[in-house]
Design a protein around this nucleic acid. Structure first.
Length: 367
DNA sequence: ATGTAC
């Protein structure tokens, strides 16, 4: 297979099962090119990869969480005035984000079942909302022109399309046997892509609503300007060599739509990066995070001796974690993830990015 | 990943 590029270096450990699985997927009909990003790890289909096809699309490569991504919002909270304990108390006092009313202009009816019910909720797994402060700025001009201000706290939201995307995938499999792939000229492909696009839009509104609810819950201003958004689970079309191609990103950030944020685990920095122009080799994509090192089922037994009920809720960077799901606290522990610095270094080695700034976690809020 | 299936 010479059309698969793995973006990794010696220091960056990759689970070989994921590489083998990705190689196998490259033999699917219509695949022209693929890339494994440095956060590649095993999943139902490998996470941290991009597969470019022509003539065919493969819904199962995207999975259920169509539209999942990262959005960053400004907040009115001043860095020097932040009252972390107060914010934590307020967030801990709400049983669910659903308690907080959505604005009238949310664009969707939250009472409509089942799709509206979960609008504005984070979900489980690796999803989170995190208050962050600037750690270091490497490119002041770009930082400012993107609308960032080092004096204020930002809110990073990682979430997706919840039950909506699940329903879209389920239907495509039930009606069209989409796991075999869909010829692009078929009604099945058109129908899937149309609903996929709806799920991508829904996921973005969902992130906006999460930001709104959290800022409202902590009593901060809700004029939450979204500075950046990137989607890492989707199919996007791109014309290459005068032909329409379909970029399947599964846990891969786009590198052809401007700056993106690449967070690490809750115990490490997030990197704001500007993709360079020459990202064909990585299939116009970047890592979307640090990448899992341990599978979820192993985390609790490996870590329960190391932490107490309280100590697992703070990190090496002194940030605090709010999460009422005990197993999720272990599954998402910093130890379960690779070092994001090494992942970023691989992107630098392949000359795929410039670093604009790094951000430090203050409070990580989970379901 | 999922108002999960068991």
């Amino acid at each position: 297979m010479n059309n698969l590029t793995i973006i990794s270096s010696q220091k960056n450990w990759l689970e070989q099962d994921a590489v083998i699985h990705l190689k196998k997927l490259c033999t699917l009909e219509g695949v022209v090119k693929a890339a494994g990003l440095p956060d590649l790890h095993p999943g139902k289909t490998p996470v941290g990869c991009t597969i470019i096809t022509e003539d065919m699309i493969y819904p199962h490569l995207i999975g259920n969480d169509i539209g999942c991504g990262m959005s960053i919002y400004t907040t009115s909270i001043e860095k020097r005035k932040i009252k972390t304990d107060k914010i934590i108390k307020k967030l801990e006092s709400i049983a669910s984000l659903k308690e907080i009313e959505l604005p009238d202009d949310s664009g969707l009816d939250p009472t409509s079942s089942p799709l509206g019910q979960s609008l504005g909720t984070i979900g489980g797994g690796n999803h989170f909302a995190e208050f962050q402060e600037v750690n270091e700025i490497f490119d002041e001009d770009r930082f400012k022109s993107l609308g960032f201000d080092k004096g204020h706290i930002t809110l990073l939201v990682h979430s997706g399309s919840r039950g909506f995307g699940q329903a879209v995938l389920d239907e495509s499999i039930r009606l069209y046997e989409a796991q075999k792939g869909l010829p692009i000229s078929s009604d099945a492909a058109r129908n899937y892509l149309s609903k996929h696009d709806d799920a991508v839009k829904w996921a973005l509104i969902n992130r906006d609503m999460i930001s709104y609810r959290i800022l409202k819950a902590v009593g901060a201003g809700t004029e939450n300007e979204r500075l950046l958004d990137s989607c890492h689970n989707s199919i996007t079309m791109k014309e290459l060599d005068q032909k329409q191609h379909y970029i399947h990103r599964k846990g891969a950030s786009p590198s052809d739509t401007g700056a993106v944020i690449i967070p690490g685990s809750r115990g490490s920095l997030s990197y704001l990066v500007m993709p360079k122009d020459n990202t064909e080799t990585s299939c116009y994509s970047l890592a979307h995070g640090a990448g899992r090192k341990w599978e979820r089922s192993l985390c609790k037994s490996r870590l329960q001796g190391k932490y107490t009920r309280e100590s697992i809720k703070s990190t090496a960077l002194k940030s605090r974690v709010i999460c009422s799901d005990n197993s999720l606290l272990f599954e998402e522990a910093p130890e379960a993830y690779k070092n994001v610095d090494t992942v970023i270094q691989s992107l630098l080695d392949f000359e795929l990015i410039d670093i604009i700034a790094t951000f430090k976690p203050i409070i990580t809020y989970k379901a």
